[in-house]
């Protein structure tokens, strides 16, 4: 294995001066970091901090300013080569509900030029043997994430990217997935993962990059995480249904990313400025029926993007 050195480690993932905008919103603002081979690094922060965007940039699926390389391959210029070295576990598996697990395995195995026999053993590795004939909709949340993990491990890539892999799981499902990830880390895989669950970070991470508003504000050991935590929280606002779109527009006009998930409008609010979104809506002539601050562990699965 070749690569640049970071201390005593070879560098697997190198991110340099990464910037990404979505319209007026700066999702990532000048982020630089490196992940050594065999290292597990957590991207920690509230919704909208930039975790998912950074992972998508490392995968090269969105355009960005700056430079990212994986195993020495520039992800924009040599994206295919870089992605060969990466397995990806999304927040939620996006396969069609009617697709069978075996068909999903065959698709990804074909894309990664992996022999089908090896691919099927990947199902066994995550405890899904005998599930190849089951449709995606028939799998529980935990099984879907284990399938996602099996797909990510198909060609035995040296690095795995995980985007809040346990955010949709119950306690038992979370424990299963975290246990598998710890085993992968022990086996020498490089792991870069986004999370806002302290227990997940503590179990898996060697290092934590704390993100706020698209910037790295701290680079710390996971045992020092408990005291800090992100300084942003997610607020869910309920407005009359007919005013939903107008409310989202008003908040976005003030530079606040909004997610409208059918249960209300979610925005990130800084400590000491929680009344800001309500003030904006009232100023725009929109009635606020209700609001609540979501606990970190219940926060939404997706980052709030415009």
């Amino acid at each position: 294995m070749q690569g640049g050195k970071k201390g005593s480690l070879h560098v697997m993932i190198s991110v340099s001066h990464l910037r990404k905008r979505f319209g007026r919103i700066r999702a990532v603002d000048g982020v630089s970091f490196e992940v050594g081979t065999g290292e597990a690094v957590a991207l920690w922060g509230a919704n909208g901090a930039g975790k998912t965007t950074i992972i998508r940039c490392v995968l090269g699926v969105v355009r960005f300013d700056g430079r990212i390389s994986v195993g020495g391959h520039d992800v924009l210029r040599r994206g295919k080569s870089a992605r060969h070295l990466l397995g990806y576990v999304p927040q939620e598996l996006a396969f069609h509900d009617e697709m069978r697990a075996g068909a999903a395995i065959r698709l990804v195995a074909s894309l990664r030029a992996t022999p089908l026999a090896d691919a099927m053993t990947a199902l066994e590795r995550v405890g899904l043997e005998g599930c190849a004939g089951r449709r995606v909709r028939e799998l529980s949340g935990g099984m879907k994430q284990r399938l996602a993990l099996a797909l990510a491990l198909l060609a035995d890539p040296p690095a795995i990217l995980l985007d809040e892999p346990t955010s949709n799981l119950d306690r038992s499902g979370r424990d299963d997935v975290v246990r598998m990830l710890v085993e992968l880390k022990r086996a020498g895989k490089t792991v870069l993962f986004a999370s806002h669950r302290p227990e997940e970070v503590a179990a898996l991470a060697d290092r934590v990059l704390v993100l706020e508003r698209g910037r790295i504000v701290d680079n710390r050991s996971p045992d020092r995480l408990g005291a800090a935590g992100p300084s942003f929280r997610t607020m869910r606002l309920r407005v009359p249904h007919a005013q939903n779109d107008a409310a989202a527009t008003a908040l976005r006009a003030e530079g606040l990313p909004v997610e409208n998930n059918g249960h209300g409008l979610c925005v990130n609010v800084a400590h000491g400025a929680k009344a800001g979104p309500i003030r904006i809506l009232v100023g725009a002539g929109i009635d606020v029926d209700d609001f609540e601050l979501l606990p970190l562990s219940d926060a939404h699965d997706q980052e709030i993007l415009p």
Binding site: Q2, K6, V11, S14, E34, H73, H84, P158
Partner: peptide, 9 residues
């Protein structure tokens, strides 16, 4: 930092 390209087996 220099970084030579890595390939899978």
């Amino acid at each position: 930092m220099t970084s030579a390209a890595m390939t899978l087996r």
